[in-house]
Amino acid sequence: MVRACVIAAVLPFAALPLAQAQTMPPGAKQPSDFPRAKLTAGMYVIDAAVAANDADREQGLMYRSKLGANEGMLFVFNENAVHCFWMKNTLIPLSIAFIRADGTITDIDEMQAETENNHCPRNNGVYALEMPKGWFAAKGIKPGTQIKGLPSAQ
């Protein structure tokens, strides 16, 4: 089984306040620079930033201080594998759904801010979707739910 560690973090989709923007390291991508995708989970519409290359996946949602109620980040991988996440430099708690190529959620985990614990799914997949902590539970979204609108995995 191949394990890929990905740094998961939290970045705002709107412009950052000046004080927060100054804390982003040189070369970090601004939240507004990530491509976007509109996803659906049942009747819920998700506004997701898309991290589909190594640099974007490594930065993820780092340095963000908040997410909107239906905002998240979709990680797209080029291999069907167990992709692990951690929360280094991630300032807000998140929930993460691990997703197969067909859009089926296989696992959901809760992640605390600024921790380095590994969060690994029990199943292989090609996507991971990070949302504000508790979002999936509050919407009744569980393993087996289909996520629609996913971009093609390379």
Rank of each mutant, 00 (worst) to 15 (best):
G140W: 14
Y127C: 04
M111L: 10
Q112E: 14
A4Q: 12
S152M: 14
K142D: 09
F34R: 00
P121L: 06
R64W: 00
D54F: 10
R100P: 01
D33R: 06
P151E: 03
A128L: 03
A19D: 14
P143L: 10
I108C: 14
D33W: 02
A137V: 10
A137T: 11
V2I: 07
M87A: 09
N80S: 13
A49P: 00
G144W: 04
M1R: 05
L91G: 11
N124Q: 10
E130I: 09
D54V: 11
P121M: 06
Q30G: 11
F77V: 08
N117W: 03
P17H: 07
L91S: 12
Q154I: 02
G149D: 06
D109C: 09
V10H: 03
A15E: 12
A28M: 09
A128P: 07
Q30L: 15
A41M: 14
V45G: 03
G27C: 06
A4K: 11
E116D: 12
I99S: 00
V10P: 00
Y63R: 00
I92W: 05
L94Y: 02
P17F: 02
V6C: 10
D107V: 06
M73R: 05
G149A: 06
E58G: 07
G134R: 02
G144F: 04
M73K: 06
P26H: 10
G149L: 05
